[in-house]
Structures are given as structure tokens and as C-alpha cells.
Design a protein around this nucleic acid. Structure first.
Length: 135
DNA sequence: GCCAACGTTGGC
DNA sequence: GCCAACGTTGGC
């Protein structure tokens, strides 16, 4: 099982929107590195839902429910998307600030490459962030 | 194939 | 609103 972090601007699509819908296609990713990560996702993998731009915090955990398939918003046929469903809302959001301040997360991909919208996460980092959300 | 110019994303 | 980081495009 692998762990991920996926970003969305909450005024466009928020974690609560996902809860309301129950399941959603994670579409619109137009970056090759991010696409590569989505192709590596397997059913049952867990991913943080991170609010970029507004909030700047991880707010919930979601599950990958469908693996890579053609992105329905793409006419060229070049891009893929996965489907996700809510898994668990974090008791307390974990802010970017808190993650940056935590030395155990210093080599997190997302912190090193802030523009990457889909980033892998080690189990250790995943568990650590979950623990932070319960602190 | 290189590199400058430009566009986009995301944090501050 | 600005800037840094990164990706993409186009001229050579």
C-alpha cells in the first residue's frame, strides 16, 4: 500500500465537496510528474487531501477507489485521472506551517517541490501527519 | 539540442 | 500583488 498527498484549491473543490459527492474523479492534472504518481496509485491506497491557496492545510484522508483511466475532462486522450472517495476527516487540520516546522518531515516531497500537485509520501510521514492531526 | 522568454502554480 | 520555482514553447 502506498501513501500520497493531493492538492486542490478548496474554492474549486474541497474535502467537504468530496464528502458530499461520495466519490469523484481527480481530474485536470496536467503535469507529467504528477501523472506518473497517479499511474502508480492502486486501489486502497490512502492520500491526504490538501487545501492549497486557501487554508494551506491537510484536512482529510481519501482512498483511491479506481486506478488510472482516461481523464474525462481531456479531449486529447493523453492524460489520466484516478477516482477517490473520502476515508476520514482529520480531527484537526495539519497546516503547511506545522509540517515545515517539523524536522521529521523535512524531506517530504511536497515540501521540497511545492508546485507538485500529487506527491508520494512514506508510511512514516503519513503516520506522523495523522498523529499530528490528533495531537 | 540549447536556451531565452513566457506562462502557471503556490506561498507569502 | 509579488516572487520563486518549475514547465513549456519557439527561435536558432
Amino acid at each position: 500500500m502506498n501513501y500520497w498527498l493531493m492538492k486542490s484549491e478548496p474554492d474549486v473543490f474541497s474535502y467537504d465537496d468530496l464528502v458530499r459527492k461520495g466519490k469523484a474523479e481527480w481530474d485536470g492534472v496536467r503535469n507529467h510528474a504528477a501523472q506518473g504518481h497517479m499511474k502508480a496509485m492502486r486501489k486502497g491506497d490512502l492520500a491526504f487531501f490538501y487545501h492549497s491557496n486557501i487554508g494551506l492545510e491537510a484536512v482529510g484522508i481519501m482512498t483511491i477507489v479506481e486506478e488510472a483511466a482516461p481523464d474525462s475532462t481531456d479531449d486529447s486522450g493523453k492524460w489520466i485521472a484516478v477516482h477517490v472517495a473520502p476515508h476520514e476527516k482529520l480531527a484537526k487540520p495539519v497546516s503547511l506551517k506545522a509540517m515545515k516546522a517539523d524536522s521529521t518531515l523535512s524531506d517530504m516531497v511536497m515540501l521540497r517541490q511545492s508546485r507538485l500537485s500529487v506527491a508520494p509520501l512514506s508510511k512514516a510521514h503519513f503516520d506522523h501527519i495523522v498523529a499530528m492531526s490528533k495531537a
